[in-house]
Design a protein around this nucleic acid. Structure first.
Length: 388
DNA sequence: TAAACGTGGTA
DNA sequence: TTACCAAGTTT
């Protein structure tokens, strides 16, 4: 092990006491608050999470409130955070916690890990931060810090690397300083990774562990951890339909619960096939999904978006379906005609939210002059109700 | 087991 | 613009 191995925890905790970040979920460390924060922080930056965390706690202040919420309520608060199964898992877990644990999160690691959305890392982090159990937890920050501290040369995702990291972690968690303050040790590790031991440009001058860092001693800190190159993601050309009825309501469909953007609403459409035009694509998709004949009238924006493992260029079209036709939700989970003032209440992913906003903008523009005596009042009301 | 699963920030 | 990255879990 590195020289001064036994001194590592004490130095980190002292650094954390002085330089640890002041974050909303560190104010009142109830298990519920820790749980919500840990789930939101999965693969998500702290700065992104903060406003979502505040809104969530206001809307669902307790496990019971969350258990009683609808999936739509939960997804709406989560909108924009990504990895939406996290939100649905939270709600399901809340139901289980109310039913099986009288509304209290279990302190036991094995029980925690049985709850939906809680895996090895989150189980360990809740256990150590909320319940002061010295359970090792490895996340991206911790892996990067240890990879440098011990100059691990095996690729980060390899079995060798993972085994070494677990061995290091276990050895550190055997030390009394960690066992005394497991939550602070873990959060100190996180903060070190997030503010000092940065991925591209580590600030070793500010690091409490610099003198013990094997990668720094060899000058290879920026080359650790070893990350394998990722394969380029495929790009798809997509078309979607904006279909309005005579009252100006638009047709939305709800995506299946599982899979990409599960449970969110969208403007119906899909990927083009080889050689297929965008117009042909959207006509075919609407026929397949809704069993009606769509006629594209005019383009309604081009939207580029990158998901985790592919990217799209989506062309939206405003168009019509026959007045006497009635769309059926064939492949979608549900179908709805959304009035403009209701559009914001439907949880959506990024691209569909952009389309919805554009639709709202145009709808407002086409409304009668708000100064005229006839329609001034409704316009004002709508403008206040819709938050974007 | 490897692939699926979002989004926004940064170089 | 592209590529990579950020407190992982599920299947």
């Amino acid at each position: 092990m590195n020289p001064g191995f036994e001194q590592l925890p004490a130095r980190l905790i002292a650094w954390f006491d002085r330089h640890g970040r002041d974050l909303p979920w560190r104010k009142d460390r109830t298990p519920y608050r820790v749980w919500i924060a840990e789930i939101m922080l999965q693969q998500t930056r702290v700065e992104t999470v903060v406003p979502y965390y505040r809104r969530w706690l206001e809307t669902f202040p307790t496990v019971e409130a969350l258990a009683e919420a609808s999936e739509t309520d939960v997804l709406k608060i989560w909108e924009g955070l990504g990895y939406y199964s996290r939100a649905r898992s939270l709600r399901r877990a809340a139901e289980i916690i109310v039913r099986d644990f009288r509304g209290e999160l279990p302190a036991d690691l094995n029980r925690l890990k049985k709850l939906p959305g809680i895996g090895p890392y989150t189980g360990g982090s809740i256990s150590s931060i909320a319940f002061a159990n010295p359970i090792p937890a490895l996340d991206g920050n911790v892996r990067r810090v240890y990879s440098r501290l011990f100059d691990i040369e095996a690729p980060l995702k390899s079995k060798e690397s993972e085994a070494e990291l677990e061995k290091i972690s276990a050895a550190l968690y055997a030390l009394p300083e960690v066992r005394a303050r497991p939550g602070d040790y873990l959060e100190g590790l996180m903060d070190l990774g997030a503010t000092v031991c940065l991925p591209a440009a580590p600030r070793c001058v500010a690091c409490p562990w610099a003198e013990s860092c094997a990668a720094k001693a060899r000058g290879v800190q920026t080359a650790r951890p070893v990350v394998l190159k990722k394969a380029p993601v495929p790009a798809y050309l997509v078309a979607a339909a904006v279909i309005a009825d005579s009252d100006g309501r638009v047709l939305l469909t709800r995506r299946p619960k599982n899979g990409l953007l599960g449970g969110l609403w969208e403007f119906p459409g899909g990927k083009t096939e080889d050689g297929e035009s965008l117009e042909d694509c959207v006509r075919r998709e609407i026929r397949e999904e809704l069993a009606v004949e769509f006629t594209p009238i005019r383009p309604f924006g081009v939207y580029r978006h990158a998901y985790t493992h592919f990217k799209i260029t989506l062309h939206a079209f405003v168009g019509t379906i026959p007045a006497d036709s009635k769309p059926k939700a064939l492949s979608a989970d549900a179908l709805d005609w959304a009035a403009p003032e209701q559009l914001n209440a439907y949880p959506m992913g990024k691209v569909d939210r952009l389309i919805a906003r554009k639709w709202l903008t145009e709808t407002r523009l086409n409304e009668p002059d708000p100064q005229s005596k006839e329609s001034g009042s409704p316009r004002t009301k709508r403008g206040k109700t819709i938050k974007e």
